[in-house]
Amino acid sequence: MKKLLNDPYKYVDEMLVGMCAAHPEIYRQTGEGGRVIARAGSQRPDKVGIVSGGGSGHLPVFTGYVGHGLLDACAIGDVFASPSVEQMAEAMKVAHAGAGVLRLYGNYGGDVMNFDMAGEQLEMEEDIQSTTVLLADDVSSAPPEEGEKRRGVAGMVYAFKIAGAAAEQMRSLEEVTRIAQETADSCRSVGAALTPCTIPQAGKATFEIADDEMEMGMGIHGEPGVWRDKLKPADDIAHEMVDRLIADRAIDSGDRLSVMVNSLGATPPEELYILYRVVKKRVEELGATIVMPLVGRYATSMEMSGVSMTFCFLNQEREALLQAPARCAFWQVE
C-alpha cells in the first residue's frame, strides 16, 4: 500500500477536517464524531432537505455534493462502509427545515437498512416526515427484470443536482421526491476497471487483476463485473459501454440526454476525452442531443483506474433543473 496517510483508522476523520478547512464557506462538520457534513450557514426555512450518505472513498460522492442547489447534509462512514443509523439520523435532523427530508442515495444493503431505520426513529421521536429515493443505475449489476437489485453509482450525481434544484425552488417534499425518482429512473450507468484500489484499514487491494487486463461492468467497490480480458483500445471500450447502455434503454431520435464520462479515480481526464468523442458521435448518430456533458472526476473509487459512463435522459423539467445554478467545492453550475 502506497498512500498518504497517518493512522488508517483516522483516514476519514482527517480527510473531513481538511475538506471543511479548505472550503469553510461551503461545508461544516457536525454530528457525533463529526461524521455529518452539512452546508455552512443555516438552513433556509421550509425548504425540503435532501440528505445522502454512504461510505467514504468516492469523493466528490457523497459529502462533496453538499452545497447550494445540491445536498443539504450527508452522513459518511469509513471507506466503503455504511454510516451508522445515528449519523444518518443526525444528517436528517440537520437537513430538516420544516418541510421534511428526502433521503437520496445508492442502493446498497447496509445503507438502505441504516437509512430506513434512521427515518423510522425520527418519525417516532420527532415527527419528521421523510421519503426515500434510491439510485440503482448500474446496468451490469443485475438484469433489467431485477432492476431494483441494481447498485447505485454515478447516476446519483444527476439525482443530487436535479432534485437539489427542485428543492431550491421551494417545491414540496412530494414534488422533490417525484423529480428525484424520475431522475433516478432516467439514469443508466456502466463501469470498467483497469486497476483496483486499497482500503486504508484493510491495507491491501480490493481485488487482483493482471497488468494487461481490464474488467467490464465492475462495481465501484470492486464487485465482480461481466467479463475480464486483455485491455482493449479506448474506442472499443467506449463503443462497448455505449452498446451496453443503449441495450438497456434505447436512445430514440429527438431524445435529449446528459452524458457523464467519469474517472474512477486514477484515470486522467485526457483518457476520458478520448472516450467522449466516441460517445458523442454514437449518441448523435441516433438523432439525439447531448445536453451539458460531464467529463471528469464525479464519482470515484479511491485510486482505482477505470471509467464509468452514465446517460441521464432528460425532459423539459429535468433539463431546466440540471442547468439551474449549483455550487459545491467540486462542481459549479452557473
Binding site: 451508522s84 443509523v85 437498512m113 441504516n114 431505520m117 423510522e120 426513529q121 417516532m124 421521536e125
Partner: peptide
C-alpha cells in the same frame, strides 16, 4: 424500547445491530 434500539444503532454500524434495533423499534411502535 426505542431508546434500547438506539443503544445498538448509536454504537455500531453493523448489520446485526441494525437488525436487532429494527425488531426493538417494531415492538416500540
Amino acid at each position: 424500547l426505542l431508546k434500547c434500539a438506539q443503544a445498538f444503532t448509536k454504537t455500531s454500524g453493523s448489520s446485526y445491530g441494525t437488525i436487532l434495533a429494527t425488531g426493538l423499534m417494531a415492538m416500540a411502535k
